[in-house]
Design a protein around this nucleic acid. Structure first.
Lengths: 356, 356
DNA sequence: AATATACTTGTTTGCGCACACAAAGATACA
DNA sequence: TGTATCTTTGTGTGCGCAAACAAGTATATT
């Protein structure tokens, strides 16, 4: 095709023998068009390989887009703090394009809070929504409302298939459990006593964690590593201190060679116990580059961290929405991140490198 | 937040009591301006906090930017094929912004070829250049010419500090060697006989590889893992078949528990030997997700791959240049990628996930 | 004082698109 | 046959800026 100049709407219009407005109508599916004109335009579009000039497009439609991002309160968990920072980064990145992002926080453990904030989001009248749907039922209800109002939304972190979002951004939980298993098996050799530890939560996180554990267990089963024993402990309704206490008690009773902790917070809580009791020989695999986890990795208490990259998840969520709103670019239905293995030797390279 | 409309040049001009052209002259330091007008405009700029609208700016200037990308011939090595694919992706991505990327290939092993192609690049009169500076001396010479002509350039893959590029994109080689060591140590426990294998090349790659090896060795030294023996074998002037033969001979002579192969091509060549001779018990750590490497990883011959992400390196290189040219956005001086550890359990997640 | 010359400032067009607005064509109905 | 109504198509303006072009104002020269 013509390498020198990009095809413009005007060129397409001329080739099709219609006016630019008609082409515009076809492109944006607005207004009514005769069969004949439609056919001609479609053919011309095809022939020329027309690609809209996004620069001109955003300039021309002098519109401001509003995006609402809804995540758990970062103050309660460093994990969500990272998500928040990803949203912020994206906000700055897209400010040029007349995109305004408003972030709404809900209490991770409080369904009422979720509903309250969801209402606030609706009142904000966003053009689209980014959401970490931690609360299952409440989220579904919210999605219904969004659908009714024709507001597109993207979910991340927690997958709710019935949600039918524009896109889901996250990880393959099952497979991430397998990776955790692989790391421990690799370290321990042919046999060992393994523990899976976490705090039960009354929300979608429960399923989240279950999937990881399933992957973890199946790895050993599939590879005929029958000399490993795996015990799971799920503590219910515990605060951080309580969890730490229980783990301490547990480690005194059980003979343990390796521990898999499928949540980021429980990872450093568990690490603190191993550190305090000087049990560095126990292999520990956990999740995410939280400040405390990084510390314990440098200390040699945590052996492997699986990086879920919450910052990037949120960043991409916003970016996908912007691209969808501005450029009509369809995001992938599922964007499953690589299962990044972080160790003492490569952790710095992860901390330095930014998003992207 | 700022609900008001953004400040335009026109607004600044009105406030300063001059025409838009005068403001434009101040902003771009072009043409001559009276002291008085300058002062007024500066004050108005200050007061309004004017920020140029880059979207409108690029549209208005309607300039076509030309980027030259210079990499080794992809036909000779699958690694560079991936770089090429990254460039292609970026080319498509930025086509609508009036950016034209022309890719130039040189022969990895031929200095004359490099110089020839470098001249071609200069003749192309690019606005900026992306380059993998494999040939040390020749590259420096080329950079001097680029500097003389005021053409900004970004390097990737191979770092030449004296090059003083706008940005370097790649990995921390030393640290990547350490990661390789960590993986092997983790697998083998407290002792073992280790090999480092590669083909000597008469270019900057030689240093490249040396850095990795240095990291590899220092890991064991720093961690007092003195029961590991490490032997290096660097084959000179060998083709692929020759390398395979040498490795075969070597493995018959030596008692080997683990092998570190610091280049992507030598990785699958070595793997082919282990596969053929049924030596799967030997731990193998290599580089990159080349087709052959992926195969041998699934086969269980390769245990760990360190992902250098050549595709993403090239993609980002072009993207940085575009942002610099179009939006005056300064790229980071060093963009060192995470040292990604790929195993049988997470390799799929890397293959699925695209750039980003 | 008239004209040339440098210096400074202002006006206008177009980039490619979105969208409001206007016009033309088709159909129905009296 | 004329008018109302609906359907389809076309024209024009503005988004914010870059840059070509035009014009104005001092200063020097004859």
């Amino acid at each position: 095709m013509n390498d020198f100049r990009n095809v413009r709407i005007k060129d397409v219009a001329e080739l099709a023998g219609v006016s630019v407005a008609t082409v515009d109508r076809v492109l944006h599916k607005r207004g009514k068009i005769s069969e004949k004109a439609l056919a001609k335009v479609m053919e011309a579009l095809e022939k020329t390989g027309y690609k809209p000039n996004l620069i001109a497009s955003t300039l021309g439609s002098n519109r401001v887009f509003r995006i609402a991002a809804m995540i758990p309160d970062p103050a309660l968990d460093d994990y969500w703090n990272q998500s928040g920072s990803g949203i912020l980064k994206a906000t700055e990145e897209w400010a040029q394009y007349n995109v305004r992002v408003e972030t709404f926080y809900f209490n991770l453990y409080d369904k009422k809070s979720f509903q309250l904030v969801a209402q606030k989001v609706l009142d904000f009248k966003p053009d689209s929504v980014l959401l970490a749907p931690i609360q299952y039922q409440e989220s579904l209800q919210f999605f219904t409302q969004l659908k009714e109002q024709g507001i597109p939304y993207i979910t991340f972190n927690t997958n709710i298939t019935e949600a039918e979002p524009l896109s889901f951004i996250g990880q393959d939980l099952y497979q991430s459990g397998r990776v955790g298993a692989e790391m421990l098996a690799n370290k321990l050799g042919k046999s060992g006593n393994l523990l899976v530890l976490h705090i039960f939560e009354e929300n979608q996180n429960a399923l989240h964690v279950k999937e990881k554990e399933r992957g973890f267990r199946e790895y050993f089963a599939n590879n005929n590593l029958n000399d490993f024993s795996i015990k799971s402990f799920e503590f219910t309704n515990l605060n951080d201190a309580g969890f730490v206490r229980e783990v301490e008690v547990l480690l005194n009773k059980e003979k343990v060679d390796g521990i898999f902790v499928p949540t980021s917070k429980a990872t450093h809580l568990t690490a603190s116990v191993l550190d305090k009791t000087g049990r560095k020989e126990i292999g520990l695999v956990g999740y995410d580059l939280l400040k405390d986890n990084i510390y314990y990795m440098y200390e040699g208490v945590i052996n492997f961290l699986i990086h879920q990259n919450p910052r990037k998840q949120a960043f991409k969520g916003v970016s996908y929405l912007v691209n969808y709103l501005l450029f009509k670019k369809q995001p992938p239905v599922n964007d499953l991140f690589p299962l990044e293995i972080v160790t003492r030797e490569n952790i710095k390279s992860y901390l330095h490198s930014d998003l992207s």
